[in-house]
Design a protein around this nucleic acid. Structure first.
Lengths: 232, 232
DNA sequence: TGCTACCTGTGAGCGCACTCACAGTACCGC
DNA sequence: GCGGTACTGTGAGTGCGCTCACAGGTAGCA
C-alpha cells in the first residue's frame, strides 16, 4: 500500500464517526489492517445469511442495507455514504448477516477483519467506547422507527424520512434544502414500509402544498418546519 | 449493606446477561457500586425525557418499557424480568430517556450510576465487550421488528410475539408451553402495534385452530410449530 | 354473595392504504 | 434525434384493520 493511499485512509478514518476520536497512533494501527476493495454499481458487498467476517468503511459511493421478505418485498434498513460503517453487528455477536449490503453506485470501501478489529479494540479502549455510542444511537433510531410504524400514516413516515435525508445528506440552496442523493420512489417506499404508489401520492400532497419539489430524482425540501410537523 | 444481601447481589450479577462473564473480583467491584431500590406495582422507574443517570438491574418483579404517542397511544418496547438491564442507552450516549420504565408488579432493582459504570468499564474490559454484544443483539431484534411491521399482518405479529414470549418466559407442561407472565390483550396490542380488538380476533383464530389456549390471563402455546409458521 | 372494576369477545361500519392497470415523462445509449 | 427503459403520476376497486358500541366473563373485595 503506497504512502499516498495510506494518508488518504487516515483522513477517511478521521472523518468517520467510529474512528474519528482515536489518536494518530491508533488510527495508523487500524489503517495498517485495512484493505481497499472496489464494487461496481449494483454489486453486493454481502448477502443475508452470509458468515460475517469483515467490517466495511465506505470511502466513496453509496451502499444500501436491505432485508427481503419471503415474497420478495424489500425493506431498506439504511442508506450509507463515505465515512460510514457497515457490517459491524456480525463481528460483535458472531451471528450471520441479517441483511444484504449492495453498492447503489460505484463504491470503494476499506475492509477490516474480525480478528483485526478485536486486536484494535484491545489496543484502543476509545474504539469500544465509540462503538458503544454508535450502537446506542442506532438502537434509539430503530426503536423510534418501530413506534413510527405503529403511529404514523404513510405520509407521516415519508415526511419523517425526508427530514432525515435532508439532515444527513442535504445542502442548503436559495430555494430550500436539496437532498444530495438521488432517490427513487420505489426506494423511498422500501424505506418507510409502503408501496411506491402510496409514496407517490404522499409526495404529490407535499408538492402541491409547496413543501417539497422534485428535480429529476433529487428532491428539494422547501419548508422543513411543515415537513417536520407532518411527521409528528 | 450486609454480607447476605451482598452475596445475593453477586448471584444476581452472575445470572444476568451483562455481568455474567465478569471475574469474581470484577463482580464484587460492580456490586460495591450498586444500591437496592424498591418499586410498587405501577410505579415508574423513570419517564420519557428524563435525564438518564442510572442503569437498573432487575432483581425481582417485572418492568415494562414503553413509549407514548402524542395522542396517548402506547407502544410496549420491552417486558423485562430478573437479571435484565434497563436504562443503559442514556448512560452510553448521554441523551435523555427515550421511553418510560414502569414496574408492572412489585419490583426490586439495583441501580448503578453513570460514573460508576464508566469506572467499571475502564477496569473491566470484559464489561464493554458484554455491552457491545447485548446492544448488537437488541439492534438486530429492533431491525427485525421494523421489517415485521411492514411485512406481517396483525395475526402474524401476534404469533411472532407469542413465540417470543414462549421462548423467553415459557415453561413446558403436558398440554404445551405455558407463558409464565400474565399478559392482557391490551398489552399484547401495544407490543405489536395494533388494537386490542384486532389482537383478540387473532387470538380467537389461533384458539379455535387448537394452536393456543387461554387460562385466565395466562396463555398456553399448544402448537409452537404452527405458531411459528404463522409468523413468517 | 353480591358489587364493582377490569378484562375478553364480537358485530357493524368505515377509511386508509393496498393492488391492478395504464398513461405520461425523463433519462440513456446508439 | 430516436427508441427503449426506467421512473413518475393517477384512477378505480378492494380489503385489512381501525373505531365504535355493547354484551359476556372473571377476579377481587366488602
Amino acid at each position: 500500500m503506497g504512502a499516498s493511499s495510506q494518508s488518504e485512509l487516515i483522513e477517511l478514518l478521521a472523518s468517520s464517526e467510529l474512528f474519528a476520536d482515536l489518536s494518530d497512533d491508533e488510527k495508523s494501527n487500524v489503517a495498517d489492517h485495512m484493505q481497499k476493495r472496489r464494487y461496481r454499481a449494483n454489486e453486493a458487498l454481502f448477502y443475508e445469511g452470509d458468515e460475517g467476517s469483515h467490517l466495511y468503511l465506505i470511502s466513496s459511493g453509496r451502499v444500501s442495507i436491505s432485508s427481503r421478505s419471503p415474497e420478495g418485498r424489500e425493506v431498506l434498513v439504511a442508506f450509507l455514504g463515505p465515512g460510514e460503517i457497515i457490517g459491524e453487528l456480525s463481528l460483535l455477536d458472531g451471528e450471520p448477516r441479517s441483511a444484504e449490503a449492495r453498492a447503489v453506485e460505484a463504491t470503494e470501501a476499506y475492509v477490516l477483519s474480525a480478528a483485526a478489529l478485536n486486536s484494535c479494540i484491545d489496543r484502543s479502549p476509545g474504539l469500544s467506547w465509540a462503538l458503544l455510542k454508535m450502537l446506542a444511537r442506532r438502537l434509539r433510531k430503530a426503536d423510534e422507527a418501530v413506534a413510527d410504524a405503529a403511529f404514523l400514516d404513510v405520509a407521516g413516515r415519508v415526511a419523517k424520512r425526508l427530514v432525515d435525508l435532508a439532515e444527513n445528506h442535504g445542502s442548503p440552496t436559495e430555494t430550500g434544502i436539496r437532498i444530495g442523493i438521488p432517490v427513487t420512489q420505489e426506494q423511498l417506499a422500501a424505506m418507510v414500509g409502503a408501496t411506491r404508489e402510496g409514496v407517490n401520492r404522499a409526495l404529490a400532497g407535499f408538492a402541491n402544498r409547496g413543501i417539497l419539489e422534485r428535480k429529476g430524482r433529487f428532491y428539494v425540501v422547501k419548508d422543513l418546519a411543515r415537513l417536520e410537523a407532518r411527521a409528528t
